[in-house]
Write a protein that binds this DNA or RNA. Structure first.
Lengths: 195, 195
DNA sequence: TCTGTTTCAGAACGCACGTTCTAGATCGAC
DNA sequence: GTCGATCTAGAACGTGCGTTCTGAAACAGA
């Protein structure tokens, strides 16, 4: 009876993510969105309610995928500490990224301060990243990769802060060296707790 | 012949800074601006050209004042190292700030990616902060407050990144502990280079 | 084939925006 | 007092926005 959806909602969402990343929520207009998403206005409204609904869905999709990617570096590493090292080192890649591919989470933090729902979505992603790092650091400590004097919780919190600092400054073309330095310092700090 | 300006342009600019901080560039509408600035539309256009002109002026004013404040902590301290320590420690205050008082520099970095002029303004401020810290660290090293193994340039770059990471996460209500941890870690890292 | 939903293209809606214009009041300089 | 620029208040401009509506085409299930 009912005709199933013909367009791929997941692909549409990914394209929305891309546009929101490069244009932001306000500047990404509905005409632009429909053009890049490959579906007409009406289908978009049927699927996501309105522009903000699409944005929240894109925000959640982006954050989940981003954090998944980061955390997978922890689980696939030979050891917990090496996992964190790999993860932190990978942040240096942000320095070489195209400015139009900035972190959507950071964008949302900055200009969705008055959108409680958006805030909760991004806060969830940040928390998840921090938790993943903290867990890995605790494992590393238990495994003897870190000295007992290391403070996994504090370290994890600090590393997350560095991560988002890198995410912001990477948007400034002249910050390549800053990003590299921040990553190098974070790694040195981490390694200073090795026995 | 000519009648001098009656309103205080400096005060107007400060009020513009406050509104742009809490609302962002796009959301701060002209009616809102004229209401909060205490001058009428026409005067605003005469003085600043247009909305973007006012924004750039506010951005520059904010950044200059912000960096001035930070750097003054370096110059008034008993020693170069204590100056940096005081400066870094003060970033923890961001954690307790009202969300509507976020860093305008960060806002500009995030949603003025395609405004070359705005980008240059904020890049100048970031550079100035980094340079101030680097100079202080070099002085500290020369004075024997830091070991010869410390790398002032790299440290300064890393600290600036931490500063802006703190600035972003401070906008998330649940980040008080993260901000504190980042500051504490940065201080520990700094102090680890003391002879 | 029929039926009912989805998709499409595009027109149309109301609204808020940044900006410009008009006209009168204000006030320092001459 | 006169001149000329500045400030005020408010109407009005055009534009682009998000959204809704219209009607026809596409297409899966009965």
């Amino acid at each position: 009876m009912a005709r199933p959806r013909t367009f791929n909602e997941s692909e549409v969402l990914e394209r929305a993510v891309a546009l929101f990343r490069s244009r932001g929520f306000e500047r990404a207009s509905m005409p632009e969105l429909t053009a890049h998403l490959g579906i007409c206005r009406q289908s978009l409204y049927n699927a996501f309610g309105d522009k903000r609904g699409l944005y929240l869905a894109a925000l959640d999709r982006y954050g989940a995928r981003e954090i998944d990617t980061k955390l997978s570096q922890l689980s696939t590493a030979p050891s917990p500490l090496q996992g964190v090292q790999t993860l932190v080192a990978s942040w240096a890649d942000y320095g070489a990224q195209c400015p139009s591919e900035g972190c959507l989470t950071i964008t949302a933090i900055v200009d969705s301060t008055d959108d409680e729902e958006a805030r909760q979505i991004v806060e969830g992603h940040v928390d998840r990243l921090e938790k993943g790092i903290r867990t890995a650091l605790k494992k590393a400590q238990s495994a003897g990769e870190l000295t007992p004097t290391a403070q996994p919780t504090r370290l994890a919190r600090s590393l997350v802060t560095t991560c988002y600092g890198v995410g912001v400054l990477a948007k400034l073309p002249g910050s390549t060296q800053r990003v590299k330095a921040a990553v190098a310092e974070a790694l040195d700090r981490l390694n200073s707790f090795q026995p």
